[in-house]
C-alpha cells in the first residue's frame, strides 16, 4: 500500500537532525513540519526572511506582516529572527541551511531537478527554488512516484527545463525511498512503502538505480 502524503512527509522528517536549520517547500513538504520528532530542535527557514517559523496563527493572532515563502500567514517563536531577503539567500547560498525538502515535477538519475516550468503553459517563475538547490547542503525531494498520466517522474533524463543540475540527494515518493552517498554516486533504492514490491517500483521508474534495501 502506497504511503499517504502525511506518511511521505513523516518519512522525510526522519532525515532532519537535532540542531538543523531547514527549509520546507510549498505543498507536501509543508506537512513535514508536523512530523519533526519532538526530541530534536529543528529551526525552519523561510526564504523571504524568517529564521524560526512557527505554526499557523489563530484568528486572534493573525498578522499580515508575518508570512512564509508560500505567502501563508504564520507565527513567530521564541528565538525567531527576521532578516532581509538578501541576507536570507546569503544563508542559502553560503551553505548555512542543512536541508531543503521540496516538490518536483521530474528528477533524473543524475540528480537533475525540474520543478518550475512547463513549456507552453504560463510560466510563473522560479521563485527561490534555483537558489535553494544551488546552496542548501542536502536536497530531499518529496513527490508522487508517477505523474497524473501515470508516467514515471524519476527518469533517465528530464523532459522539462531544469531548476538545477545534479542537486538532488534523496527522493521520497509514495512508493519508495531513494538516496545516494554523494553527488557522484548513483541512486539506491533503500526503502519500500508497506506492501510495495521492487517489481512495482521498477515498473514505475525510468531512472537507473541500484537496489540496496535495508
Amino acid at each position: 500500500m502506497a504511503w499517504t502524503r502525511d506518511q511521505m512527509a513523516a518519512r522525510a522528517a526522519l532525515e532532519l537532525r537535532d540542531g538543523d536549520y531547514a527549509n520546507l517547500g510549498i505543498g507536501i513538504p509543508t506537512l513535514v513540519a508536523n512530523h519533526i520528532p519532538p526530541d530534536i530542535d529543528v529551526t525552519l527557514h523561510s526564504e523571504n526572511g524568517i529564521i524560526g517559523l512557527g505554526p499557523f496563527p489563530t484568528a486572534a493572532t493573525i498578522d499580515a506582516d508575518i508570512i512564509n515563502a508560500g505567502k501563508q500567514t504564520i507565527t513567530e517563536l521564541p528565538g525567531t529572527a527576521y532578516v532581509s531577503s538578501a541576507d536570507s539567500f546569503g544563508l542559502v547560498r553560503g551553505g548555512h541551511i542543512a536541508a531543503s525538502i521540496l516538490g518536483a515535477m521530474e528528477v533524473s538519475e543524475g540528480g537533475d531537478l525540474s520543478n518550475w516550468m512547463v513549456p507552453g503553459k504560463m510560466v510563473k517563475g522560479p521563485g527561490g527554488a534555483m537558489d535553494l538547490v544551488a546552496g542548501v547542503r542536502r536536497i530531499i525531494v518529496l513527490m508522487d512516484h508517477v505523474d497524473k498520466a501515470g508516467n514515471p517522474k524519476f527518469r533517465r533524463e528530464n523532459s522539462l527545463p531544469y531548476t538545477g543540475r545534479n542537486v538532488v540527494d534523496m527522493i521520497v515518493t509514495d512508493l519508495a525511498v531513494f538516496d545516494r552517498r554523494d553527488r557522484r554516486s548513483p541512486f539506491r533504492l533503500i526503502e519500500l512503502a508497506p506492501g510495495v514490491t521492487t517489481e512495482q517500483v521498477a515498473a514505475r521508474t525510468q531512472a537507473h538505480y541500484i537496489e540496496e534495501l535495508t
Binding site: E47, S84, A86, M130
Partner: peptide, 30 residues
Amino acid sequence: FCPQGTLAERIRAGGAGIAGFYTRTGVGTL
C-alpha cells in the same frame, strides 16, 4: 525572470556599487 536570491543580491549589489557577481544559482538552467 530572475531567481529570488539572485534578484535580492542584484539589487543589493546595485545599491552597493557592485557591477556584477558570480553565483552557482541557475547554472545549467535557462
